[in-house]
Structures are given as structure tokens and as C-alpha cells.
Amino acid sequence: MCSLCGVMSKEHWAELGDGRRARVFRAAVLNRVLEHFGLSAQAWAGSQYVLRDRKGGTAVVSDLGALWVEAERLHGAPLDPLAADLLAALES
């Protein structure tokens, strides 16, 4: 239960049982990927992240699933993990 809004909340499947260490590691992985699209993510309170673009755009997202929805909106196009240019950037 979220103490602020009183709504029953549910942990995202990829973040079940996360500790601080896991969140730090996840943010590191996310930032390597998001960098390619001109975005960055910062782990925030609870399971939230603050997402930023290079033009000053900011969004607070509730979990990892919501992060990609908002990242797509800020970037203006889908962020495809199979894209060859992304994989080349990750390998460099």
C-alpha cells in the first residue's frame, strides 16, 4: 500500500525484492543504454526513476516498465534493443 495515495501498489516483475545495490546496478545498465538515445535515468525514491533528456525534459516514472514508455515519449520514437546501431554503441 502506498502511504501517500492509499492505492494498493504492485512491484514491477523485474524489481521484485530489489535492494539498494540492485537499483544502483540497474541504473548503471540503464544509463549505458539510454545514453545512446540522449537520455539518462537516476534511481529515485522507492522504485521510481527520474528520466532526463538533453533539452531539459524531465519525467518521474514509477518503475522500469513505465520508464520505457516515457523514454519513448521523450525520444520521439521507440527505443529498440535489437537495433544494430545501439548494439554497436554498447560494444564500443
Binding site: 540503464l30 522500469l64 516498465g65 520505457w68 534493443p81
Partner: peptide
């Protein structure tokens, strides 16, 4: 597991 979660959530959003 952490990298897998990032990868699969991204894949499911994009495709």
C-alpha cells in the same frame, strides 16, 4: 538478471 530485466522490458515496449 538485472540486465535481463532491463533488456526484456525494453523489448516488450519497443516490439
Amino acid at each position: 538478471w538485472i540486465a535481463f530485466g532491463v533488456w526484456l522490458t525494453m523489448l516488450l515496449q519497443a516490439r
